[in-house]
Protein backbone atom coordinates (compact mmCIF):
# COMPACT_ATOMS: atom_id res chain seq x y z
CA UNK A 1 0.00 0.00 0.00
CA UNK A 2 2.75 2.43 0.96
CA UNK A 3 4.63 1.62 -2.24
CA UNK A 4 1.62 2.49 -4.39
CA UNK A 5 1.12 5.83 -2.63
CA UNK A 6 4.83 6.52 -2.99
CA UNK A 7 4.73 5.65 -6.71
CA UNK A 8 1.80 8.03 -7.30
CA UNK A 9 3.46 10.77 -5.21
CA UNK A 10 6.76 10.47 -7.08
CA UNK A 11 4.95 10.52 -10.42
CA UNK A 12 2.97 13.61 -9.38
CA UNK A 13 6.21 15.31 -8.39
CA UNK A 14 7.77 14.38 -11.74
CA UNK A 15 4.79 15.88 -13.54
CA UNK A 16 5.15 19.18 -11.68
CA UNK A 17 8.92 19.20 -11.87
CA UNK A 18 8.87 18.63 -15.65
CA UNK A 19 6.47 21.51 -16.18
CA UNK A 20 8.10 24.67 -17.54
CA UNK A 21 5.59 26.85 -15.69
CA UNK A 22 6.90 25.48 -12.39
CA UNK A 23 10.46 26.59 -13.15
CA UNK A 24 9.25 29.94 -14.41
CA UNK A 25 7.38 30.67 -11.17
CA UNK A 26 10.32 29.51 -9.03
CA UNK A 27 12.65 31.69 -11.11
CA UNK A 28 10.44 34.76 -10.73
CA UNK A 29 10.05 34.05 -7.03
CA UNK A 30 13.81 34.12 -6.61
CA UNK A 31 14.18 37.14 -8.89
CA UNK A 32 11.59 39.21 -7.01
CA UNK A 33 12.96 38.13 -3.64
CA UNK A 34 16.47 39.24 -4.64
CA UNK A 35 15.20 42.45 -6.24
CA UNK A 36 13.98 43.51 -2.79
CA UNK A 37 17.60 44.60 -2.31
CA UNK A 38 16.91 47.39 -4.79
CA UNK A 39 13.83 48.47 -2.86
CA UNK A 40 15.86 48.53 0.34
CA UNK A 41 18.21 51.04 -1.30
CA UNK A 42 15.30 53.31 -2.14
CA UNK A 43 13.70 53.37 1.30
CA UNK A 44 14.68 54.98 4.53
CA UNK A 45 15.25 52.97 7.65
CA UNK A 46 16.62 49.53 8.32
CA UNK A 47 17.62 48.09 4.95
CA UNK A 48 17.65 44.50 6.24
CA UNK A 49 14.09 44.86 7.55
CA UNK A 50 12.92 46.10 4.14
CA UNK A 51 14.86 43.32 2.44
CA UNK A 52 13.21 40.69 4.62
CA UNK A 53 9.78 42.26 4.38
CA UNK A 54 9.61 42.50 0.59
CA UNK A 55 11.65 39.36 -0.09
CA UNK A 56 9.48 37.15 2.10
CA UNK A 57 6.33 38.66 0.58
CA UNK A 58 7.62 37.85 -2.93
CA UNK A 59 8.42 34.24 -2.02
CA UNK A 60 5.05 33.90 -0.30
CA UNK A 61 3.22 35.22 -3.37
CA UNK A 62 4.96 32.94 -5.88
CA UNK A 63 4.69 29.86 -3.65
CA UNK A 64 0.94 30.43 -3.26
CA UNK A 65 0.67 30.80 -7.06
CA UNK A 66 2.49 27.48 -7.59
CA UNK A 67 0.33 25.76 -4.94
CA UNK A 68 -2.91 26.96 -6.52
CA UNK A 69 -1.96 26.27 -10.14
CA UNK A 70 -0.47 22.82 -9.60
CA UNK A 71 -3.17 21.85 -7.09
CA UNK A 72 -6.15 22.73 -9.27
CA UNK A 73 -4.67 21.22 -12.43
CA UNK A 74 -3.21 17.89 -11.48
CA UNK A 75 -6.28 15.85 -10.49
CA UNK A 76 -8.48 17.55 -13.07
CA UNK A 77 -5.95 16.74 -15.82
CA UNK A 78 -5.84 13.10 -14.70
CA UNK A 79 -9.62 12.88 -15.13
CA UNK A 80 -9.87 15.00 -18.26
CA UNK A 81 -7.07 13.20 -20.10
CA UNK A 82 -8.24 9.85 -18.69
CA UNK A 83 -4.82 8.92 -17.32
CA UNK A 84 -6.71 8.16 -14.10
CA UNK A 85 -8.17 5.08 -15.88
CA UNK A 86 -4.69 3.58 -16.11
CA UNK A 87 -4.16 3.95 -12.38
CA UNK A 88 -7.58 3.07 -10.98
CA UNK A 89 -7.93 0.03 -13.25
CA UNK A 90 -4.94 -1.38 -11.37
CA UNK A 91 -5.12 -2.55 -7.75
CA UNK A 92 -5.01 1.02 -6.45
CA UNK A 93 -7.80 2.38 -4.27
CA UNK A 94 -9.18 5.85 -4.78
CA UNK A 95 -7.99 6.77 -1.28
CA UNK A 96 -4.43 5.82 -2.22
CA UNK A 97 -4.70 7.89 -5.38
CA UNK A 98 -5.75 11.06 -3.52
CA UNK A 99 -3.19 10.61 -0.73
CA UNK A 100 -0.47 9.96 -3.34
CA UNK A 101 -1.46 13.07 -5.27
CA UNK A 102 -1.40 15.20 -2.12
CA UNK A 103 2.00 13.92 -1.04
CA UNK A 104 3.36 14.51 -4.54
CA UNK A 105 2.09 18.08 -4.46
CA UNK A 106 3.55 18.52 -0.97
CA UNK A 107 6.92 17.37 -2.29
CA UNK A 108 6.60 19.81 -5.19
CA UNK A 109 5.90 22.68 -2.80
CA UNK A 110 8.77 21.66 -0.54
CA UNK A 111 11.15 21.70 -3.52
CA UNK A 112 9.94 25.08 -4.77
CA UNK A 113 10.06 26.60 -1.30
CA UNK A 114 13.47 25.09 -0.53
CA UNK A 115 14.91 26.54 -3.75
CA UNK A 116 13.57 30.04 -3.07
CA UNK A 117 14.16 29.98 0.69
CA UNK A 118 17.72 28.63 0.45
CA UNK A 119 18.82 31.37 -1.93
CA UNK A 120 17.01 34.10 0.01
CA UNK A 121 18.41 32.89 3.36
CA UNK A 122 21.96 33.11 2.01
CA UNK A 123 21.22 36.46 0.41
CA UNK A 124 20.03 37.97 3.71
CA UNK A 125 23.07 36.55 5.49
CA UNK A 126 25.45 37.99 2.89
CA UNK A 127 23.63 41.34 2.99
CA UNK A 128 24.53 41.73 6.65
CA UNK A 129 21.42 40.20 8.20
CA UNK A 130 23.29 37.22 9.66
CA UNK A 131 21.86 33.71 9.87
CA UNK A 132 18.40 34.58 11.10
CA UNK A 133 16.82 31.29 12.19
CA UNK A 134 13.45 33.00 12.47
CA UNK A 135 13.41 33.11 8.65
CA UNK A 136 13.54 29.31 8.64
CA UNK A 137 10.60 29.25 11.04
CA UNK A 138 8.78 31.64 8.71
CA UNK A 139 9.33 29.27 5.78
CA UNK A 140 8.16 26.32 7.88
CA UNK A 141 4.90 28.14 8.67
CA UNK A 142 4.57 29.16 5.03
CA UNK A 143 4.99 25.48 4.06
CA UNK A 144 2.10 24.56 6.39
CA UNK A 145 -0.04 27.25 4.77
CA UNK A 146 0.89 25.95 1.31
CA UNK A 147 -0.12 22.43 2.33
CA UNK A 148 -3.53 23.73 3.40
CA UNK A 149 -3.90 25.58 0.07
CA UNK A 150 -2.87 22.46 -1.86
CA UNK A 151 -5.42 20.39 0.08
CA UNK A 152 -8.13 22.99 -0.69
CA UNK A 153 -7.30 23.05 -4.41
CA UNK A 154 -7.18 19.24 -4.48
CA UNK A 155 -10.66 19.12 -2.93
CA UNK A 156 -12.12 21.46 -5.55
CA UNK A 157 -10.31 19.85 -8.47
CA UNK A 158 -11.75 16.45 -7.52
CA UNK A 159 -15.23 17.53 -8.56
CA UNK A 160 -15.12 20.74 -10.58
CA UNK A 161 -13.32 22.47 -13.46
CA UNK A 162 -9.97 24.28 -13.09
CA UNK A 163 -11.59 27.71 -13.54
CA UNK A 164 -14.11 27.13 -10.75
CA UNK A 165 -11.40 25.48 -8.61
CA UNK A 166 -9.23 28.56 -9.13
CA UNK A 167 -12.04 30.94 -8.14
CA UNK A 168 -12.97 28.89 -5.05
CA UNK A 169 -9.37 28.37 -3.93
CA UNK A 170 -8.36 32.01 -4.41
CA UNK A 171 -11.53 33.13 -2.61
CA UNK A 172 -10.78 30.86 0.33
CA UNK A 173 -7.17 32.05 0.36
CA UNK A 174 -8.24 35.69 0.53
CA UNK A 175 -10.96 35.00 3.11
CA UNK A 176 -8.45 32.90 5.06
CA UNK A 177 -6.32 35.99 5.62
CA UNK A 178 -9.17 38.15 6.94
CA UNK A 179 -10.73 35.58 9.24
CA UNK A 180 -10.37 37.91 12.22
CA UNK A 181 -13.18 40.05 10.74
CA UNK A 182 -15.58 37.11 11.11
CA UNK A 183 -14.79 37.07 14.80
CA UNK A 184 -15.52 40.79 14.99
CA UNK A 185 -19.00 40.26 13.54
CA UNK A 186 -20.31 38.84 16.81
CA UNK A 187 -19.79 42.25 18.38
CA UNK A 188 -21.59 44.06 15.57
CA UNK A 189 -24.41 41.69 14.58
CA UNK A 190 -27.58 41.72 16.68
CA UNK A 191 -29.63 38.96 14.98
CA UNK A 192 -28.65 35.66 16.69
CA UNK A 193 -28.84 33.66 13.44
CA UNK A 194 -26.25 35.80 11.67
CA UNK A 195 -24.13 35.86 14.80
CA UNK A 196 -24.01 32.05 14.92
CA UNK A 197 -23.62 31.85 11.16
CA UNK A 198 -20.53 34.06 11.07
CA UNK A 199 -19.12 32.19 14.08
CA UNK A 200 -19.67 28.88 12.25
CA UNK A 201 -17.84 30.28 9.23
CA UNK A 202 -15.04 31.48 11.48
CA UNK A 203 -14.44 27.95 12.72
CA UNK A 204 -15.16 26.21 9.41
CA UNK A 205 -13.14 28.25 6.91
CA UNK A 206 -9.34 28.06 6.92
CA UNK A 207 -7.71 30.65 9.15
CA UNK A 208 -4.51 31.15 7.17
CA UNK A 209 -3.42 34.10 9.28
CA UNK A 210 -2.42 31.57 11.93
CA UNK A 211 0.61 30.77 9.76
CA UNK A 212 1.64 34.37 9.17
CA UNK A 213 4.57 35.27 11.41
CA UNK A 214 6.16 37.77 9.05
CA UNK A 215 5.82 40.73 11.41
CA UNK A 216 7.60 38.85 14.19
CA UNK A 217 10.39 37.82 11.81
CA UNK A 218 10.85 41.22 10.21
CA UNK A 219 10.54 43.19 13.45
CA UNK A 220 12.56 40.53 15.27
CA UNK A 221 10.05 40.30 18.12
CA UNK A 222 9.45 37.27 20.37
CA UNK A 223 7.41 34.32 19.11
CA UNK A 224 5.19 32.34 21.43
CA UNK A 225 6.13 28.63 21.02
CA UNK A 226 2.58 27.60 21.98
CA UNK A 227 1.14 29.69 19.17
CA UNK A 228 3.45 27.89 16.74
CA UNK A 229 2.56 24.51 18.27
CA UNK A 230 -1.21 25.08 17.98
CA UNK A 231 -0.81 26.41 14.45
CA UNK A 232 0.94 23.16 13.47
CA UNK A 233 -1.86 21.13 15.07
CA UNK A 234 -4.45 23.30 13.32
CA UNK A 235 -2.76 22.77 9.94
CA UNK A 236 -2.57 19.00 10.40
CA UNK A 237 -6.20 18.74 11.52
CA UNK A 238 -7.40 20.98 8.69
CA UNK A 239 -5.43 19.08 6.04
CA UNK A 240 -6.70 15.71 7.32
CA UNK A 241 -10.29 16.98 7.29
CA UNK A 242 -9.90 18.32 3.72
CA UNK A 243 -8.34 15.07 2.51
CA UNK A 244 -11.12 13.07 4.16
CA UNK A 245 -13.79 15.12 2.34
CA UNK A 246 -11.85 14.85 -0.96
CA UNK A 247 -11.60 11.08 -0.55
CA UNK A 248 -15.32 10.79 0.25
CA UNK A 249 -16.20 12.74 -2.93
CA UNK A 250 -13.68 10.82 -5.03
CA UNK A 251 -14.91 7.43 -3.76
CA UNK A 252 -18.37 8.09 -5.11
CA UNK A 253 -17.29 9.57 -8.41
CA UNK A 254 -18.17 7.88 -11.71
CA UNK A 255 -15.48 8.19 -14.41
CA UNK A 256 -17.44 8.40 -17.64
Amino acid sequence: MKMKIKAIAVNTFKESARNKMFYLLVFFGILFALSSKLISFLTLGDAIKVLKDTGLAAINFFCVLIAIFTGINLVYKEIEKKTVFNILSKPVSRDQFIIGKFLGLALTMLTALAAMAGIFFLFVALSGGGFDLKIILYFFMLFLELLVIVAISLLFSSFTTPILSFIFTVSLYLIGHIMWTFNEFKLILRVPFWKYFTQALYYLLPNLDKFNIKNEVVMNTALNPWTIFFSVLYALAYILALLAVTILIFRKRDFQ
Binding site: N11, E15, K82, T83, N86, S89, K90, P91, V92, S93
Partner: peptide, 19 residues
Amino acid sequence: VASRCRIGFLPENPYFYDY
Protein backbone atom coordinates in the same frame (compact mmCIF):
# COMPACT_ATOMS: atom_id res chain seq x y z
CA VAL B 1 -9.48 -3.62 -5.35
CA ALA B 2 -7.70 -6.98 -5.00
CA SER B 3 -9.65 -8.45 -7.94
CA ARG B 4 -7.85 -6.01 -10.22
CA CYS B 5 -4.51 -7.71 -9.45
CA ARG B 6 -5.37 -10.34 -12.06
CA ILE B 7 -6.55 -7.90 -14.74
CA GLY B 8 -4.62 -6.08 -17.41
CA PHE B 9 -6.48 -3.21 -19.07
CA LEU B 10 -5.92 -1.31 -22.28
CA PRO B 11 -8.33 1.66 -22.53
CA GLU B 12 -9.82 2.95 -25.76
CA ASN B 13 -7.56 5.62 -27.32
CA PRO B 14 -5.15 5.38 -24.41
CA TYR B 15 -3.43 8.51 -23.16
CA PHE B 16 -0.42 8.28 -20.92
CA TYR B 17 1.71 10.84 -19.12
CA ASP B 18 3.50 12.45 -22.04
CA TYR B 19 6.34 13.74 -19.87
